[in-house]
Amino acid sequence: MSIRIVALVGSARAGSHNRQLAETAIKLAPEGVEVQLQEGLAQVPFYNEDIDVEDGVPQQAAALREAVAHADAVLLFVPEYNGTMSAVLKNAIDWLSRPFGAGALAGKPVAVIGASGGQYGGVWAHEDARKAAKTAGGAVIEDITFSIPDSLNRFAGIHPLDDREVATELASAVGRLAQAAQRAAEETTVAL
């Protein structure tokens, strides 16, 4: 069975370290695992029930929901902005949470990792992202944690792919998330 993981990057900046981490995850995914970067989160309108209607969900929001609905797991790359996750990522989670109890995140294994320029690697933002994803119905894998502090200096002259420690930890996180997705799929098959 092939496992598809959708990567959601909480930074809209093209050269962000979290985007670079997502691109690295794509390259390091083990055989049988595909990591797909979901583009366009910055174009998803702010969640509003008035525009979340059956015959008129905005195209960008519908594409996000469809990508996550067809994925086996979700990998959130979370920068820290002012002590919490970015509005871009929080908005994506809000769209994925609806309809409540049956949103695209419902029951999906979710892991939260990322880099930040701060000394703690964005752990506050990661905690908030885990809480939001869990509230949205995701099956957050609490023991997959990877926070890279001081990313501005750490990646000043090197891509995350070329940082052996980062590459090893990231590959491990992707592999463990894929295993969780495989277990979830097997449990669903047995239940049927």
Rank of each mutant, 00 (worst) to 15 (best):
R19M: 11
E54W: 10
F77R: 00
T168K: 00
I158N: 05
G121F: 05
A102E: 02
Y47N: 08
S16H: 13
S2E: 15
E54T: 15
A115Y: 02
Y81M: 00
L75H: 04
E187R: 05
S151F: 13
G117S: 09
L96G: 06
I51L: 13
L64C: 05
V112F: 01
E54K: 15
A178L: 04
V78C: 08
P109W: 05
V123M: 05
E80W: 15
V6Y: 01
G157I: 01
A69G: 00
R19L: 15
A167F: 13
R164S: 07
A185S: 08
P58W: 15
E142P: 00
T24P: 04
G15E: 11
A14N: 12
A133F: 14
I93G: 01
R4P: 01
V123W: 04
V6K: 01
E169T: 10
V33A: 02
F100L: 12
D72T: 07
V74D: 14
E54P: 12
R98C: 10
A173S: 14
D163K: 00
L152V: 11
Q59N: 05
A12H: 07
W124D: 00
V53I: 10
A181K: 01
I113M: 10
L161D: 06
V57C: 08
G32I: 08
Q38G: 02
V57M: 09
V112W: 00
Q60R: 00
G122D: 00
I3F: 07
A62S: 05
F155M: 07
P30T: 12
L8N: 01
G121Y: 08
G137W: 00
E142V: 06
W95I: 09
A129L: 06
G117R: 00
P30R: 11
A25G: 09
Q36M: 15
V88C: 07
K131I: 15
A7Y: 07
R65L: 09
R98N: 07
A156L: 14
I93T: 01
D94Y: 02
G114F: 15
P79Q: 04
V78D: 04
